[in-house]
Design a binder for these strands. Structure first.
Lengths: 221, 221
DNA sequence: TAGATTGTTAATCGATTAACAATC
DNA sequence: TAGATTGTTAATCGATTAACAATC
């Protein structure tokens, strides 16, 4: 009899839901700053223009309970989301490729809540090695292996040029890294147990440009 | 009788499909470089590890026809995709907020095909105004309005701090901008005809971190 | 011709939305 | 109590996957 008894069998949360959660978190932190201590799903839905039912379902993954007619406690929700997402733990990461995007991410993490902490960056470019970006050391790429063994880092951020992406990803795996955040356009071929999250700027720009061109044609007709 | 006759009624292409198209484009360009002139959906599917049927359906949006037993012409597909996505036209854009992420995007567009061309950047920070990033001028934010009127730019890239995002977005609309690429965490409230594409780094990191924590729990059990 | 692949139509799967009972 | 909201279950919607005929 699966899922019965004390062991609550956790259902895998869908990717669309997961992607919406940081949005709720940011919204709720702003609400908290305004002194709002209770907030209902219909209110959230109106502000974030999405369906109230969806808000209820999304927030249910945190296990935080709301009160009918009142809503949820803002503080509890924030902590429930942070806990569920793992944003309150320090998820340490290595970054390889301290170019433009890599540098942006390093500097970015101070202001935006990415939920992870880049503790060191690596690059083969001697001009970058030894510098600090956003308070993070840029080290020789060679040192990745030895440092990984010592620090037991699980997350690798991949912001190299496309042509070395596969090689660096494999080195990440060698180093014991379990999850790779891939900003290159390369479709990485890695062992099945490695978690890969692809972030493609081109995908989003493609949607934007296409929608714009769509609307222009529609107007012309 | 809708959709009949010469006017082929274009069906709206789904967002998941749209997001996959730049991936095909990159893959096909690499294939072309290797001298591959014909390529089949099963081959593409194997390399990109996705379903061959999906490849066929995705590529069908371009209108490019394949030959049974042979596949598609690489060159035709590349051009079909570029044309469909609008990546061969110059989609000119303004960027507001020449901070870390903004700078990265400006420098990035030279190497990565984003399909759009940032022709000027704007910032209120006097230290940034007058500089060049990735060959792009950073101008006074004040000048956005007058320059928009002259250049008829349709796309705005929003990489400001969150607290000014809504204001700048409204100014974009005032300036005649029709599509906004929003990198802030703010849920923009704008007229319905304005196209907004949200890109949230936090969403992707949330998926990554959660999947990692999921897998660690599973292994422990 | 035989066989692989395209291209379309049908079936499945999963996420979103709607409905409604429980509850404060 | 009355009414708004939670939380769950059912219905809908859309995307992915499977099936299969057309075709080179």
């Amino acid at each position: 009899m699966k899922g019965s008894g004390k062991n609550r069998l956790k259902k895998r949360v869908s990717e669309p839901t997961l992607k919406r959660l940081p949005g709720y978190l940011y919204y709720l932190e702003k609400a908290k700053e305004k002194g709002i201590i209770s907030i209902s799903a219909p209110t959230i839905g109106k502000d974030l223009n999405c369906d109230a039912t969806q808000v209820v379902k999304d927030l249910a993954v945190t296990g935080v309970k709301g009160k009918p007619k009142v809503g949820y406690n803002t503080y509890e929700l924030i902590h429930g989301l942070e806990d569920f997402l793992g944003f309150n733990r320090t998820n340490e990461a290595f970054l390889v490729g301290a170019g433009n995007l890599g540098s942006a991410l390093m500097a970015y993490q101070e202001h935006q809540v990415l939920g992870l902490k880049i503790i060191a960056a690596f690059d083969v470019d001697e001009k970058k090695v030894g510098t600090h970006i956003g308070g993070i050391h840029v080290l020789e790429y060679k040192k990745l292996f030895s440092l990984s063994k010592r620090l037991n880092v699980k997350i690798g951020v991949l912001t190299t040029p496309n042509d070395v992406a596969q090689k660096v990803a494999e080195e990440f795996v060698n180093c014991g890294i379990k999850a790779i955040w891939n900003f290159t356009l390369v479709n990485l071929k890695l062992p099945g147990e490695i978690i890969v999250q692809n972030t493609s700027m081109s995908s989003d720009s493609a949607v934007l440009i296409r929608r714009l061109n769509d609307s222009e044609v529609t107007i012309k007709n």
